[in-house]
Design a protein around this nucleic acid. Structure first.
Length: 851
RNA sequence: GGGCGGUUAGCUCAGUGGUAGAGCACCGGCCUUACACGCCGGCUGUCACAGGUUCGAAUCCUGUACCGCCCACCA
């Protein structure tokens, strides 16, 4: 203990953020100690926020939770490995850069080293090469990242800011490509031309994890197909425009109504295409008329039927979502009436789906095939989560990671992770068990990690996708749109006998899934890797269990046969007062910086930390005010405790020892809670103790402490000891105010101080706690409460005699400050003067046993 | 349709078998040399509903309702 605290005259919260953020940075308080071994490290796989968006209060909420855990672990002596990433990869950044600079990416263009962004966005946008486009993305996101870092620092995240990464950065690109090449070599990654979910506006494939269902108005159309014997069969469809793409009708094998029809042919209306009637168990006799048309492709069930029944492909919708030209007749698609099929189709060719539907319905009505009126319905339609129009299924060449065959292993991995809260594991298992295809990782976009492969161009000028040249690992990262494969010259790009680069980029999750690899130095820094992997904690929100969490588990399983981390802490959402998730679209987002400035970072952190792990929590300014009050109270109480540190001496008084016993119990309990990631419970108990300490304990002992005897020394010593411990208990939650107070009388940072232990308190108080000390405190509080109550009820002024009847029903003794010694010594105390506040009340205590 | 959470004071939430709690809000009192950004006191409940287990249920079981979320559902 240092001897002379230097306490400001008027302690205040204002300015603490700037002051301490700067000093922490200068002193390297949160720097990762690279000499620690794996057991001594606590490694956190921080979620990299999307920098093209803006941080909202939900980020502040969940990142605070992680920071509390990080600070706790640091104080417990772990070398905390706490990096920060920026997710600048992917579509959101692309869109922002396009608008900001007025550019469009054209991957066919060569890199222009002299290119500079126009001062004002030109119209129409200029076309730039992919490397140039990526440079612009990098430049713009660098600005965003500065603003994000500033906010995080202001909030007090104890991140090691020398450990930052960007998901589009060179290092992340290199590891993404390297990990991909490993998967390719092991056969886990493959490419195939196949029907894929496709967004017609972004013109890219999307993965199952990026889908969402939206309720959409539609209608059932009842459409008549002619049988070859002059009869007919009716189907119901919501997508009549796909009739030209119909390749079969399907009924359930057990459906007696259609059994006779199976194996026969029918003719599609308008187009006169002979198609077979087939049977498949997925056909639902309850839906529509019980018999459905199979089109290439209306939905994923169509894909299943098409694959399992070996049907032909007659695709009508192209990558842009419009109906592509089709030739009918002997040189093209089959029809019993090619001429009328051609003229009918020509009237829908070039149209987008919605317009083609209207036109097709007209055609059906004219031909008499439309039965009755359309029946309006609302149904759920699959959308890309960032898209505006329904997904189509378009056949294209895509890269996949094979996952369907290892779903059991992935479920098992999930069981090896400790989940907070535990029920979040169920979400993971539901997702893994519900997977219906391998992970499509290629996107037809630009700002992303390219696939490090090229293809030979055949003599006819078309790429041969089976002749794939991969980049040498030493060259990674490469951009095949600019870089040239080994053994070729740049002039051979795109010419017969030459090469062409893979034009696609990876799904953003294909990079994000590697965050543990990126930060821990997979394949690049074996020493760091050994000290940090597998990591300890993945904090994240529950809406990305199916994407980020799942894909990270998958990648670690495939690449390292390991868990990526041992613990997943799933945070809840911040809800607005209407119990809806706070979001920008609802216009109820509060800017985080404004909050931090208005209430103070400690106060906002207090609100966040009160939201339990995984619990959706209401946005509540009231709680921030409570947090601010707590921080101010801590300043003032500390000032009072430190206003009298003399005389020094051992803790001899029962009341003081009882208080420290309670504190020791609190330390144990708070530690247990934090070990179990229940920071909210730890904060609640600590806060409760602190207020009791202020309102009861300090009031009880302040008069005694004012003296200069051993009893005064006892109070002074115990108060300081308690303050020291409370500061450390609160440090993970209120890093600024605790650090400020710590600096008044302690060396170094409280955030590097040792987490308190009950044993440490025991050592200072003395061995073998006497339970009578704890009882003394309890009774002192009870008597105090009685006095306060009496005085309030009877509106007594000060210095007036107070009569208290105190019953010893449970054989316990009342005790209170100076009285306690007499009572504990067995003296027959009947009257005593006690102090409350600055005044004195004469209290007469009658010891009476009602029994 | 399948699954997971939740429902406790006006509000925000603790409370996993033993007399219903905290903070905020509200009402009343107090400038008491750490703090009026403070202190003291008080009011406030069919623990969603219905059954069951138990000496005893907010807590365990079954069912229902409502709120939220995840997944499935395009014929």
């Amino acid at each position: 203990m240092s001897s002379s605290p230097s306490v400001p005259e008027k302690p205040a919260l204002e300015g603490l953020e700037d002051k301490w953020t700067r000093r922490w940075d200068e002193a390297g308080v949160y720097r990762f100690d690279r000499s620690a071994d794996r057991a001594g490290v606590y490694a956190i796989d921080t979620p990299p926020p999307t920098v093209s968006g803006s941080l909202h209060v939900g980020h502040v909420f969940s990142y605070t939770h992680t920071d509390v855990i990080a600070r706790f672990q640091r104080m417990r002596g772990r070398a905390v490995f706490y990096p920060m990433g920026w997710d600048d990869n992917g579509l959101p950044t692309e869109r922002r850069v396009q608008n900001y600079f007025g550019v469009r990416c054209d991957p066919s263009l060569p890199y222009d080293p002299a290119f500079a962004a126009p001062a004002t966005p030109p119209k129409p946008p200029v076309s730039v090469s992919r490397p140039n486009f990526i440079e612009l993305c990098t430049a713009l996101t660098a600005e965003d990242e500065k603003a994000f870092e500033h906010l995080w620092r202001h909030l007090g995240l104890s991140v090691d800011w020398s450990l930052t990464y960007a998901t589009i950065g060179r290092h992340a690109q290199r590891l993404s490509q390297l990990a991909f090449l490993r998967l390719l070599a092991s056969g886990r990654a493959y490419q195939i031309e196949a029907p894929t979910l496709w967004d017609i506006d972004f013109r890219t494939a999307v993965a199952q994890a990026e889908l969402e269902d939206r309720e959409t108005p539609g209608a059932y159309y009842r459409v008549r197909f002619a049988t070859r014997d002059g009869g007919h069969v009716d189907i119901e469809t919501t997508r009549p425009e796909l009739i030209p793409a119909c390749v079969a009708l399907v009924a359930h094998p057990d459906d007696a109504r259609y059994r006779a029809l199976v194996g026969r042919e029918v003719l599609t209306p308008v187009f006169g295409v002979p198609v077979p009637v087939v049977a498949h168990p997925l056909a639902d006799p309850e839906k529509g008329s019980g018999i459905a048309m199979i089109c290439t492709f209306g939905d994923l069930t169509d894909v299943t039927w098409w694959r399992e029944l070996s049907l032909p492909v007659r695709a009508v919708i192209g990558p842009s979502g419009t109906f592509r030209p089709v030739v009918w007749g002997s040189d093209g698609w089959p029809s019993v009436a090619p001429a009328s099929a051609q003229s009918a189709y020509d009237s829908i060719a070039g149209l987008p789906a919605a317009k083609a539907r209207a036109r097709t319905v007209d055609l059906l009505r004219e031909s008499g095939a439309l039965q009755g009126d359309p029946r309006p319905i609302t149904h759920h339609v699959k959308f890309y989560e960032k898209g505006d129009r329904p997904l189509e299924i378009v056949t294209s060449r895509q890269w996949f990671i094979r996952t369907m065959d290892i779903r059991d292993q992935l479920v098992e991995r999930g069981r090896q992770i400790t989940w907070t809260p535990a029920h979040m594991r169920t979400r993971y298992e539901n997702w893994v068990n519900g997977l219906n295809g391998d992970w499509c990782i290629s996107r037809q976009r630009f700002f992303g990690v390219p696939f490090p492969v090229w293809y030979r161009v055949g003599a006819d000028g078309t790429p041969d996708y089976s002749a794939c040249c991969v980049a040498d690992v030493s060259r990674l990262p490469v951009d095949p749109s600019t870089d040239v494969p080994e053994g070729f010259a740049p002039s051979q790009r795109g010419v017969p006998g030459g090469f062409v680069g893979d034009p696609d980029v990876m799904d953003t999750w294909a990079t994000s899934s590697l965050t543990p690899f990126i930060v821990c130095g997979w394949e690049t820094d074996p020493d760091l890797w050994r000290r940090t992997f597998p990591m300890d904690l993945r904090p994240q929100a529950h809406d990305i269990i199916r994407t980020w969490l799942f894909s990270t588990v998958l990648r670690a399983h495939l690449a390292e046969d390991s868990l990526p981390w041992t613990h997943a802490a799933i945070s809840g959402w911040v809800l607005d007062p209407d119990r809806k998730k706070m979001s920008k679209s609802k216009g109820n987002v509060v800017t985080p910086m404004g909050l931090l400035e208005e209430h103070g970072s400690d106060a906002v952190r207090y609100w966040a930390a009160r939201g339990g792990p995984g619990v959706d929590t209401a946005f509540d300014v009231g709680q921030m005010k409570v947090g601010r009050r707590l921080a101010i109270k801590l300043l003032n109480a500390s000032k009072f405790v430190l206003s009298k540190t003399e005389p020094a001496g051992p803790v001899t008084e029962a009341l003081d020892r009882g208080m420290l016993q309670e504190l020791a119990a609190l330390v144990d309990s708070a530690t247990r809670h934090l070990e179990a990631y229940d920071y909210a419970a730890a904060l609640r108990e600590t806060e409760e103790f602190f207020w009791r300490f202020c309102d009861d304990y300090i009031e009880l002992v302040k008069r005694r402490r004012a003296g200069d005897d051993t009893a005064a020394a006892s109070a002074a010593t115990a108060s300081q000891l308690a303050l020291d411990v409370m500061l450390r208990l609160l440090a993970p939650f209120l890093p600024y105010v605790t650090e400020e107070v710590w600096s008044w009388w302690r060396e170094g940072s409280v955030h590097r101080a040792a987490w308190p232990t009950a044993a440490e308190l025991g050592a200072l108080v003395g061995p073998a706690p006497d339970e009578r000390d704890a009882i003394a405190l309890v009774h002192a509080r009870e008597v105090t409460a009685l006095i306060r109550q009496e005085r309030s009820t009877h509106k007594w002024g000060f210095a007036k005699p107070l009569r208290v009847r105190f019953h010893l029903a449970d054989r316990r003794e009342p005790a209170w400050d100076a009285i306690e010694r007499d009572i504990l010594a067995g003296n027959n105390v009947t009257s005593h003067t006690v102090t409350f506040g600055a005044a004195e009340d004469a209290v007469h205590i009658e010891l009476a046993d009602p029994a």
